[in-house]
């Protein structure tokens, strides 16, 4: 009996903790938005973060995109040729990339590559009093440190997702057309006939924008509130990757339902 009550108490506590943390994150988000103009006005702050988040992620994104596209082409061809419609490979690959894999895989890779680095950097700045020192110098650390990193994530992710999808289509082209020998013309024309700019490409962009907000917020939040110890920073870094990945996958589901509902009407 006692243990049951204890269990329920434990559950209640963890739910309350999670809610408190969510509330904290919400307030933090608002604080960031209040000063989001700073990195826009002082562009060099944003440029530096774009370099570390975006440019440094470029290689892994392009390489992954190419390989994902190539694998999609092989697997897709294998299935499609059973139904005698191998020329529709282009549509299959392009839609998978632009709608889902581009935004989602890019966000997952980005969380691991750039998000974790941002968390570790901010966590260390916190642990070594750099943030406190800045605050004492009457420079708002949210404006000067946090918001450029957040904004860089929001800007980089859609750009990276586009590059991922483009690289993927290119990879599929290499395998499908150059290797397997699907007709060049029908590969592209089927793709163009099947992929809609607004419905597929713009929706994919919107997805990656939302993921950019989520991953960016989680990364700076975990870093800012990381316990100022080596262990605290390292576990915050791990949490950034885990939480962002979960958030991306769940948001993807919600966005997909919302975007593609009633499409078959």
């Amino acid at each position: 009996m006692n243990s049951v009550i204890e269990m329920i108490e434990g559950l209640g506590r963890s739910v309350l903790n999670a809610l408190a943390r969510l509330g904290l994150a919400g307030r933090f988000f608002l604080a960031i938005l209040m000063v989001i103009g700073v990195p826009l006005r002082r562009f060099s702050l944003l440029v530096r973060e774009l370099y570390f988040s975006g440019v440094r992620s470029l290689l892994i994104i392009v390489v992954s995109g190419t390989f994902v596209g190539m694998v999609l082409a092989i697997q897709g061809y294998e299935v499609l040729q059973r139904f005698g419609s191998a020329e529709t490979l282009g549509v299959l690959v392009a839609l998978s990339l632009v709608r889902e894999l581009g935004p989602v895989v890019t966000a997952l890779l980005f969380a691991g590559r750039a998000g974790s680095a941002v968390t570790a950097e901010i966590g260390l700045m916190q642990a070594t009093d750099q943030i406190a020192a800045m605050d004492m110098m009457a420079v708002n650390p949210i404006a000067r440190i946090i918001s450029p990193r957040f904004l860089a994530s929001v800007v980089s992710l859609p750009l990276l997702a586009c590059m991922f999808s483009a690289a993927g289509v290119f990879g599929a082209y290499l395998v499908g057309v150059k290797l397997i020998g699907i007709d060049d013309g029908s590969f592209w024309s089927q793709m163009q006939a099947g992929v809609d700019f607004r419905l597929d490409i713009v929706n994919g962009l919107i997805k990656s924008l939302v993921f950019g907000v989520a991953v960016g917020l989680i990364a700076v939040f975990e870093g800012y509130y990381a316990p100022p110890t080596a262990e605290g920073v390292s576990s915050a870094t791990t949490r950034t990757v885990v939480t962002s990945s979960l958030a991306v996958l769940m948001l993807d589901f919600v966005l997909t339902v919302w975007m593609f509902r009633g499409l078959n009407g």
């Binding site: 440029v47 530096r48 774009l50 370099y51 975006g54 440019v55 470029l58 392009a94 632009v98 859609p158 750009l159 990276l160 586009c162 590059m163 999808s165 483009a166 690289a167 289509v169 592209w188 793709m191 163009q192 006939a193 992929v195 809609d196 700019f197 597929d200 490409i201 962009l205």
Partner: peptide, 25 residues
């Protein structure tokens, strides 16, 4: 960082244009 970031943004926009023109309709 200016040059690298400039190229990065240009490459991203180029990829979007490619998706819009060549992949989409």
């Amino acid at each position: 960082f200016d040059l690298a970031v400039g190229l990065f943004v240009a490459a991203g926009i180029l990829a979007l244009v490619f998706l819009a023109m060549k992949v989409g309709n």
